[in-house]
């Protein structure tokens, strides 16, 4: 077998890589913000806010219960028929964000619920409002607990973001597809791209391990790790 790799592919692949990073980073960050809100609503909503609980739950079930690809297509092709036109990038970012928000909401909810109830009680006994107790006591602990599942979600979304080449976004996968089609070097191009993805996964893992260690509470073990 005669494998051919060309340096000339690299600038395009690097552009694709940058776009993959941008899509992943933005959707994960926006998804985290939205996911935390969804989780807080699902854990704490009561009384007059109860309808929000229903909405948040329906949202989470819908987006976790349908394929990302279907969500992307529905957004990209569906919204223009409603008179909302979006660039492929915007539609992709939106789809990725809405999707990961639902998953992240579940991770955040789990983390919030594993903060011991005595923490909230002690905070309220001091005179902190519910929101203050959430902000200063519950969330700082929950955010630490959520790092391991959140790392998995990050890796998953980074790989999952490849589907957006289907609406014409030239991220890593899109660039690879183009180069491969032009040069008839499918195997080689995809090997290089796979290595790019692998390098990204490695990078994310290292960064998040670092964050996890930096935020570790002295004296406490990390749940799930010996």
């Amino acid at each position: 077998m005669n494998l051919v790799f060309r340096w000339a592919w690299l600038p395009r692949l690097a552009q694709g890589l940058a776009l993959t990073l941008e899509l992943t980073g933005l959707s994960m960050a926006l998804g985290a913000a939205f996911g935390i809100v969804l989780a807080l609503v699902r854990v704490y909503a009561k009384g007059p806010l109860m309808p929000l609980y229903g909405l948040a739950s329906a949202y989470v079930h819908f987006f976790r219960g349908t394929p990302l690809l279907v969500q992307l297509m529905a957004l990209y092709y569906g919204l223009p028929t409603l008179g909302v036109a979006m660039s492929p990038f915007t539609a992709s970012l939106l789809a990725l964000t809405l999707n990961t928000a639902a998953y992240q909401a579940e991770y955040f909810r789990g983390a919030i619920q594993s903060v011991k109830s005595g923490q909230m009680l002690a905070a309220r006994a001091l005179g902190l409002t519910r929101l203050q107790a959430i902000r200063y006591v519950v969330l700082p602990q929950a955010l630490r607990l959520v790092i391991p599942p959140w790392s998995n979600e990050l890796v998953y979304m980074m790989k999952g973001s490849a589907v957006v080449y289907l609406v014409g976004v030239l991220e890593l996968m899109g660039q690879a597809k183009n180069i491969a089609a032009r040069e008839f070097r499918n195997f080689e191009v995809y090997i290089v791209v796979a290595l790019f993805y692998l390098a990204l996964v490695f990078l994310f893992t290292v960064i998040l391990r670092f964050v996890e260690n930096r935020t570790r509470i002295p004296g406490l073990g990390v749940p799930g790790r010996p």
Partner: peptide, 28 residues
Amino acid sequence: NKIRAQIGFVFQDFNLFTHLTALDNVRL
């Protein structure tokens, strides 16, 4: 909340805020 600030509460299992130092527990 104003009232609770005037009534101390000491729990059987302490309920110190686990992510805060002793100083920060008292300062919060």
